[in-house]
Design a protein around this nucleic acid. Structure first.
Lengths: 232, 232
DNA sequence: CTCTGCAATTGATTAATGTCAAACCTTAGT
DNA sequence: ACTAAGGTTTGACATTAATCAATTGCAGAG
């Protein structure tokens, strides 16, 4: 029954180049599961028994400390998460919960580590994936440390605009309170920040954003490929 | 002349398990260089031509945006840096400068990528190194997003205390203004933060820190292995 | 030893952000 | 259609942090 989803997974950069035998060996004893919204798939601190692949829906990675909670990232199909913990056989640093009804493939971590040793192409893909994630995390640190919350929001909007196709009108794909947490601010301040961007041609209607003056916003946001580019 | 430093480098986790032939191939055309203090070894945005290994001295990784600058981490012997950019053959996300007179080995990035393909042990070590760095970066994000500056300082002191041997009196190994930048605060606020930790038994004399009431400070700082542990 | 330059500190002020409370809006369920 | 629940917005206020200005302290150069 899982076989029908192999093709989707197989196409991921992480798995596309590996030997078929090794892929089958990797997927052995892995299983597809459907979860309702708001289910905690992973609790930070627990061992990482599975590499997760989101096939459908969306999953939020977040972290808690001392009664506080912050959103770290949102995983959308088709992507993996918790790769570093899987490889290191170390406890998860983040918790994960479904935001909506989601289908997730769970691949036993032991398989990943085993096949890594056997398949050079897979090993290379893992390194690329890890290095990319590592760099994305460094970018996030720069975003947090070098920018004010208003600048973070402005640049987020530009990134989201690009992801949605680059048009002046686009949609936030995230609840605002979650976006606030992601951007390290309170929901109240996010509301005010949207207003503060009005002079730069940003208007908000629910989850619909309009950027009426692209260059004004960009002049304020000053996006940098070394912080805001997805891939490089 | 470089040969004399091979043993030190060879002992690093990253290189210790690989085949001798491959190690020699890796080090081919690499060279050792001594730099005076305050030299920019790397400028963010530039291609990553070399994997760097700090043999002696210390190197600060930092980032700039829009006229601001922030310290990301300090590399002390013997460690490598800029591994992710090297592997991805991507531009450096951070700049690097020597803090003191330092000796650095530069290994051509092309060598690293070539030997990675040839040596399975090396590939595995690279994955471990990357995954560890990735996780360290996630921990840094959690530290930044979940804690106030005072809590960050308190936890930093506890970590530094551990690194220095765990005694109640120890030394900061960093200039205070650099520490401030590392902790994402201004030098002025760092001064005030030290004072604010006095009620928890922290006293400061230059770079000498005394923690007179360990449990009080820990009760305030609430260190977590999922943020503060170096290795896991 | 003194001078000089820079780091560190201190105080006063301003700006940014978080908190609290209330009102408003949207939406899912009855 | 109505209601309840929860997300969003708004305003008043508190807290935190950054900025500005001035002073102190310290280490290296002459």
């Amino acid at each position: 029954m899982l076989e029908s989803h192999h093709p989707d997974i197989r196409k991921l950069d992480l798995f596309s180049e590996m030997e078929e035998d090794n892929f089958i060996s990797l997927m052995h004893a892995s299983y597809l599961q459907t979860f309702p919204p708001q289910i905690e798939l992973i609790l930070e601190g627990e061992p990482s028994d599975f590499l997760h692949v989101v096939i459908d829906g969306s999953v939020e990675l977040f972290a808690r400390w001392n009664g506080r909670e912050t959103s770290i990232t949102i995983i959308r199909p088709i992507s993996t998460f918790i790769l570093a913990a899987t490889l290191r056989n170390a406890p998860n640093l983040m918790s994960a919960r479904t935001l909506e009804k989601s289908r997730v493939v769970l691949i036993p971590s032991a398989n990943v580590r085993r096949v890594f040793d056997a398949d050079n192409k897979f090993a290379r893909a893992i390194v690329t994936e890890l290095a990319t994630g590592y760099r994305a995390s460094i970018k996030k640190t720069k975003d947090l440390k070098l920018r004010t919350s208003l600048e973070r929001l402005a640049n987020y909007l530009l990134r989201q605009q690009t992801r949605e196709g680059g048009h002046p009108v686009f949609e936030l794909q995230t609840e605002k309170r979650r976006l606030a947490s992601y951007l390290s601010m309170t929901p109240e301040n996010l509301s005010r920040a949207f207003k503060a961007l009005q002079p730069y041609g940003v208007t908000v209607d629910g989850c619909r954003i309009t950027i009426s003056n692209q260059s004004d916003l960009e002049k304020f946001a000053r996006p940098s490929p070394l912080i805001d580019d997805k891939t490089t």
